[in-house]
Protein backbone atom coordinates (compact mmCIF):
# COMPACT_ATOMS: atom_id res chain seq x y z
CA UNK A 1 0.00 0.00 0.00
CA UNK A 2 3.03 2.23 -0.33
CA UNK A 3 1.75 3.56 -3.67
CA UNK A 4 -1.68 4.29 -2.24
CA UNK A 5 -0.10 6.19 0.65
CA UNK A 6 1.98 8.30 -1.74
CA UNK A 7 -0.99 8.93 -4.02
CA UNK A 8 -3.26 10.03 -1.17
CA UNK A 9 -0.51 12.29 0.21
CA UNK A 10 -0.21 13.92 -3.20
CA UNK A 11 -4.00 14.22 -3.42
CA UNK A 12 -4.04 16.02 -0.07
CA UNK A 13 -1.15 18.30 -1.03
CA UNK A 14 -2.69 19.29 -4.31
CA UNK A 15 -6.18 19.75 -2.85
CA UNK A 16 -4.79 22.05 -0.15
CA UNK A 17 -2.51 24.10 -2.40
CA UNK A 18 -4.23 24.26 -5.80
CA UNK A 19 -7.66 25.54 -6.59
CA UNK A 20 -9.48 23.54 -9.28
CA UNK A 21 -9.51 25.12 -12.76
CA UNK A 22 -13.30 25.57 -12.91
CA UNK A 23 -13.29 27.58 -9.67
CA UNK A 24 -10.28 29.66 -10.63
CA UNK A 25 -11.99 30.58 -13.88
CA UNK A 26 -15.14 31.66 -12.04
CA UNK A 27 -13.07 33.84 -9.68
CA UNK A 28 -11.23 35.50 -12.58
CA UNK A 29 -14.57 36.15 -14.34
CA UNK A 30 -15.94 37.77 -11.20
CA UNK A 31 -12.87 40.00 -10.93
CA UNK A 32 -13.71 41.32 -14.41
CA UNK A 33 -17.24 42.17 -13.32
CA UNK A 34 -16.43 44.08 -10.12
CA UNK A 35 -16.21 47.85 -10.30
CA UNK A 36 -12.63 49.11 -10.51
CA UNK A 37 -11.21 50.82 -7.46
CA UNK A 38 -13.62 49.21 -4.97
CA UNK A 39 -12.59 47.19 -1.95
CA UNK A 40 -14.47 44.28 -3.54
CA UNK A 41 -12.09 44.46 -6.49
CA UNK A 42 -9.02 44.68 -4.26
CA UNK A 43 -10.23 41.69 -2.22
CA UNK A 44 -10.58 39.64 -5.41
CA UNK A 45 -7.12 40.72 -6.52
CA UNK A 46 -5.67 39.51 -3.23
CA UNK A 47 -7.57 36.24 -3.71
CA UNK A 48 -6.17 35.89 -7.23
CA UNK A 49 -2.62 36.50 -6.00
CA UNK A 50 -3.17 34.09 -3.14
CA UNK A 51 -4.21 31.31 -5.50
CA UNK A 52 -1.02 31.78 -7.55
CA UNK A 53 1.23 31.97 -4.47
CA UNK A 54 -0.21 28.83 -2.87
CA UNK A 55 0.31 26.81 -6.03
CA UNK A 56 3.80 28.15 -6.60
CA UNK A 57 4.88 27.51 -2.98
CA UNK A 58 2.93 24.28 -2.62
CA UNK A 59 1.41 25.59 0.60
CA UNK A 60 -2.20 25.75 1.85
CA UNK A 61 -4.45 28.21 0.01
CA UNK A 62 -6.14 28.83 3.36
CA UNK A 63 -4.71 28.15 6.81
CA UNK A 64 -7.95 26.44 7.79
CA UNK A 65 -7.40 23.21 5.93
CA UNK A 66 -10.79 22.13 7.10
CA UNK A 67 -12.72 18.93 7.61
CA UNK A 68 -11.07 16.18 5.60
CA UNK A 69 -13.73 14.36 3.62
CA UNK A 70 -12.90 11.51 1.23
CA UNK A 71 -15.42 10.15 -1.27
CA UNK A 72 -14.34 6.79 -2.65
CA UNK A 73 -15.96 5.02 -5.60
CA UNK A 74 -14.61 1.49 -5.46
CA UNK A 75 -15.10 -1.89 -7.11
CA UNK A 76 -17.11 -4.63 -5.40
CA UNK A 77 -14.92 -6.46 -2.88
CA UNK A 78 -12.58 -3.51 -2.31
CA UNK A 79 -10.67 -3.57 0.99
CA UNK A 80 -12.15 -0.53 2.73
CA UNK A 81 -10.37 -1.15 6.02
CA UNK A 82 -6.91 -0.99 4.49
CA UNK A 83 -7.90 2.10 2.53
CA UNK A 84 -9.06 3.89 5.64
CA UNK A 85 -5.89 2.98 7.56
CA UNK A 86 -3.78 4.24 4.66
CA UNK A 87 -5.81 7.44 4.44
CA UNK A 88 -5.24 8.11 8.13
CA UNK A 89 -1.50 7.57 7.65
CA UNK A 90 -1.47 9.97 4.70
CA UNK A 91 -3.33 12.59 6.76
CA UNK A 92 -0.77 12.29 9.57
CA UNK A 93 2.10 12.79 7.16
CA UNK A 94 0.38 15.64 5.30
CA UNK A 95 -0.05 17.38 8.67
CA UNK A 96 3.64 16.96 9.53
CA UNK A 97 4.57 18.42 6.16
CA UNK A 98 2.28 21.42 6.69
CA UNK A 99 -0.12 20.62 3.82
CA UNK A 100 -2.75 20.42 6.58
CA UNK A 101 -2.96 22.52 9.74
CA UNK A 102 -3.09 20.76 13.12
CA UNK A 103 -6.81 21.09 12.90
CA UNK A 104 -8.58 18.42 14.89
CA UNK A 105 -9.60 19.02 18.49
CA UNK A 106 -10.94 16.56 21.09
CA UNK A 107 -14.39 17.99 21.75
CA UNK A 108 -14.43 16.90 25.41
CA UNK A 109 -10.92 17.75 26.59
CA UNK A 110 -10.17 20.56 24.14
CA UNK A 111 -6.82 18.95 23.38
CA UNK A 112 -5.34 19.02 19.90
CA UNK A 113 -2.87 16.16 19.49
CA UNK A 114 -1.59 17.67 16.27
CA UNK A 115 -2.21 14.65 14.06
CA UNK A 116 -5.60 15.42 12.48
CA UNK A 117 -6.55 11.81 13.15
CA UNK A 118 -9.29 11.00 15.66
CA UNK A 119 -12.96 10.11 15.89
CA UNK A 120 -14.59 11.46 12.72
CA UNK A 121 -11.35 12.72 11.23
CA UNK A 122 -10.76 12.06 8.44
CA UNK A 123 -14.19 11.03 7.18
CA UNK A 124 -14.37 8.46 4.39
CA UNK A 125 -17.52 7.78 2.36
CA UNK A 126 -17.35 4.57 0.33
CA UNK A 127 -19.55 3.87 -2.62
CA UNK A 128 -19.32 0.58 -4.49
CA UNK A 129 -19.82 0.49 -8.22
CA UNK A 130 -19.76 -2.25 -10.84
CA UNK A 131 -16.58 -1.04 -12.43
CA UNK A 132 -12.93 -1.86 -11.85
CA UNK A 133 -12.13 1.84 -11.40
CA UNK A 134 -11.03 3.27 -8.07
CA UNK A 135 -11.82 6.98 -7.85
CA UNK A 136 -10.93 9.00 -4.78
CA UNK A 137 -12.26 12.52 -4.35
CA UNK A 138 -11.30 14.82 -1.51
CA UNK A 139 -12.92 17.93 -0.10
CA UNK A 140 -11.23 20.11 2.52
CA UNK A 141 -13.93 22.32 3.98
CA UNK A 142 -12.95 25.10 6.35
CA UNK A 143 -14.80 26.03 9.53
CA UNK A 144 -15.73 29.57 8.52
CA UNK A 145 -17.92 28.39 5.66
CA UNK A 146 -19.12 25.33 7.57
CA UNK A 147 -20.40 27.58 10.35
CA UNK A 148 -22.69 29.52 8.00
CA UNK A 149 -24.40 26.39 6.70
CA UNK A 150 -28.07 26.26 7.65
CA UNK A 151 -30.90 23.77 7.80
CA UNK A 152 -34.50 24.93 7.51
CA UNK A 153 -37.62 22.98 8.37
CA UNK A 154 -40.59 23.94 6.23
CA UNK A 155 -43.04 25.51 6.67
CA UNK A 156 -41.13 28.43 8.18
CA UNK A 157 -43.61 31.03 9.35
CA UNK A 158 -41.09 33.80 9.95
CA UNK A 159 -39.81 33.60 6.38
CA UNK A 160 -43.27 32.82 4.98
CA UNK A 161 -41.77 29.74 3.37
CA UNK A 162 -44.22 26.96 2.48
CA UNK A 163 -43.53 23.38 1.45
CA UNK A 164 -42.92 24.10 -2.22
CA UNK A 165 -40.11 25.31 -4.48
CA UNK A 166 -41.01 28.92 -3.76
CA UNK A 167 -40.55 28.21 -0.06
CA UNK A 168 -37.23 26.50 -0.79
CA UNK A 169 -36.10 29.57 -2.72
CA UNK A 170 -36.95 31.84 0.22
CA UNK A 171 -34.97 29.88 2.77
CA UNK A 172 -31.95 29.37 0.49
CA UNK A 173 -31.78 33.13 -0.13
CA UNK A 174 -32.17 33.72 3.61
CA UNK A 175 -29.10 31.54 4.15
CA UNK A 176 -27.18 33.75 1.72
CA UNK A 177 -28.35 36.89 3.53
CA UNK A 178 -27.42 35.53 6.95
CA UNK A 179 -24.02 34.33 5.75
CA UNK A 180 -23.05 37.79 4.40
CA UNK A 181 -19.24 37.68 4.10
CA UNK A 182 -18.65 35.40 7.07
CA UNK A 183 -18.22 32.28 4.97
CA UNK A 184 -15.48 33.89 2.84
CA UNK A 185 -17.45 34.79 -0.22
CA UNK A 186 -17.86 34.75 -3.08
CA UNK A 187 -19.18 31.35 -2.13
CA UNK A 188 -20.76 28.31 -3.69
CA UNK A 189 -23.95 26.76 -2.33
CA UNK A 190 -24.63 23.05 -2.11
CA UNK A 191 -28.27 22.42 -1.28
CA UNK A 192 -30.38 19.36 -0.59
CA UNK A 193 -34.16 19.58 -0.62
CA UNK A 194 -35.54 16.75 1.50
CA UNK A 195 -33.79 13.90 3.26
CA UNK A 196 -33.46 13.75 7.04
CA UNK A 197 -31.33 16.05 9.19
CA UNK A 198 -28.20 13.99 8.61
CA UNK A 199 -28.61 12.98 4.96
CA UNK A 200 -29.84 16.45 4.02
CA UNK A 201 -26.52 17.99 4.98
CA UNK A 202 -24.62 15.00 3.63
CA UNK A 203 -26.20 15.27 0.16
CA UNK A 204 -25.84 19.06 0.19
CA UNK A 205 -22.06 18.65 0.62
CA UNK A 206 -21.87 16.06 -2.15
CA UNK A 207 -23.08 18.76 -4.53
CA UNK A 208 -19.60 20.28 -4.20
CA UNK A 209 -18.25 17.35 -6.22
CA UNK A 210 -20.03 18.71 -9.30
CA UNK A 211 -18.21 20.92 -11.81
CA UNK A 212 -19.04 24.56 -11.32
CA UNK A 213 -20.18 25.10 -14.91
CA UNK A 214 -22.33 21.95 -15.19
CA UNK A 215 -26.11 22.20 -15.45
CA UNK A 216 -28.62 20.28 -13.41
CA UNK A 217 -30.32 17.57 -15.54
CA UNK A 218 -33.54 18.22 -13.62
CA UNK A 219 -35.14 21.23 -15.28
CA UNK A 220 -36.87 22.55 -12.17
CA UNK A 221 -33.72 22.34 -10.09
CA UNK A 222 -31.68 23.86 -12.91
CA UNK A 223 -34.01 26.86 -13.01
CA UNK A 224 -33.83 27.21 -9.24
CA UNK A 225 -30.02 27.06 -9.33
CA UNK A 226 -29.82 29.81 -11.98
CA UNK A 227 -32.43 31.92 -10.22
CA UNK A 228 -30.70 31.76 -6.81
CA UNK A 229 -27.32 32.55 -8.39
CA UNK A 230 -28.66 35.58 -10.20
CA UNK A 231 -30.74 36.87 -7.31
CA UNK A 232 -27.94 36.43 -4.77
CA UNK A 233 -25.65 38.44 -7.01
CA UNK A 234 -28.15 41.30 -7.01
CA UNK A 235 -28.12 41.63 -3.22
CA UNK A 236 -24.90 43.67 -3.11
CA UNK A 237 -23.19 41.56 -0.44
CA UNK A 238 -20.11 41.04 -2.60
CA UNK A 239 -16.71 39.43 -1.97
CA UNK A 240 -16.02 39.13 1.79
CA UNK A 241 -19.27 41.01 2.39
CA UNK A 242 -17.55 44.24 1.30
CA UNK A 243 -20.38 45.08 -1.09
CA UNK A 244 -20.20 44.35 -4.81
CA UNK A 245 -21.54 42.25 -7.62
CA UNK A 246 -20.25 38.79 -6.80
CA UNK A 247 -21.87 37.19 -3.79
CA UNK A 248 -21.98 33.64 -5.17
CA UNK A 249 -19.97 31.80 -7.82
CA UNK A 250 -22.34 28.88 -8.14
CA UNK A 251 -25.39 27.07 -6.80
CA UNK A 252 -25.85 23.29 -6.88
CA UNK A 253 -29.10 21.71 -5.71
CA UNK A 254 -30.28 18.13 -5.37
CA UNK A 255 -33.45 16.57 -4.04
CA UNK A 256 -33.90 13.50 -1.85
CA UNK A 257 -37.07 11.84 -0.71
CA UNK A 258 -38.44 12.93 2.64
CA UNK A 259 -40.90 11.68 5.20
CA UNK A 260 -44.42 13.06 4.96
CA UNK A 261 -43.81 14.77 8.31
CA UNK A 262 -40.47 16.39 7.41
CA UNK A 263 -39.44 18.96 4.83
CA UNK A 264 -35.83 19.99 5.33
CA UNK A 265 -33.82 22.30 3.14
CA UNK A 266 -30.13 21.91 3.98
CA UNK A 267 -27.71 24.52 2.75
CA UNK A 268 -23.95 24.05 2.80
CA UNK A 269 -21.74 27.00 1.95
CA UNK A 270 -18.32 26.58 0.36
CA UNK A 271 -15.86 29.46 0.53
CA UNK A 272 -14.03 30.80 -2.52
CA UNK A 273 -11.08 28.68 -1.35
CA UNK A 274 -12.92 25.70 -2.80
CA UNK A 275 -10.62 22.80 -2.14
CA UNK A 276 -11.79 19.82 -4.10
CA UNK A 277 -9.72 17.37 -6.11
CA UNK A 278 -9.86 13.76 -7.16
CA UNK A 279 -7.79 10.99 -8.62
CA UNK A 280 -8.44 7.81 -10.50
CA UNK A 281 -6.06 5.17 -9.20
CA UNK A 282 -4.57 2.15 -10.95
CA UNK A 283 -4.96 -1.22 -9.17
CA UNK A 284 -1.44 -0.80 -7.75
CA UNK A 285 -2.45 2.52 -6.16
CA UNK A 286 -0.57 4.79 -8.57
CA UNK A 287 -2.40 7.89 -9.84
CA UNK A 288 -3.73 7.25 -13.36
CA UNK A 289 -5.36 10.66 -13.86
CA UNK A 290 -6.75 13.70 -12.06
CA UNK A 291 -10.51 14.12 -12.00
CA UNK A 292 -10.78 17.93 -11.89
Amino acid sequence: MQNLHASLLELIRRTSAEIPDDVQKAILDSLEREKKGTIAESALKIIERNIDLAKQKSQPICQDTGSIIFYVDCPVGFDQITFEETARGAVREATKKGFLRQNSVDSLTGLNDGTNVGPGSPTVHFHQHRSAELNVRLILKGGGCENVGAQYSLPNEKLKADRDLKGCRKVILDAVLQAQGKGCGPGILGVCIGGDRATGYEFSKQQFLRMLEDRNPNLELDQLEQDILQTANELGIGPMGFGGKTTLLGVKICAANRLPASFFVSVSYMCWAYRRQGVSLKPDGVIARWLY
Binding site: I46, R49, N50, I61, C184, M240
Partner: peptide, 10 residues
Protein backbone atom coordinates in the same frame (compact mmCIF):
# COMPACT_ATOMS: atom_id res chain seq x y z
CA UNK B 1 -9.24 38.90 3.18
CA UNK B 2 -10.46 35.55 4.47
CA UNK B 3 -8.74 32.56 2.96
CA UNK B 4 -5.83 34.63 1.64
CA UNK B 5 -3.42 32.67 3.80
CA UNK B 6 -0.43 32.91 1.47
CA UNK B 7 -0.61 36.62 0.67
CA UNK B 8 -0.99 37.38 4.38
CA UNK B 9 1.76 34.94 5.43
CA UNK B 10 4.10 36.88 3.14
Amino acid sequence: VGGAAQVLAE
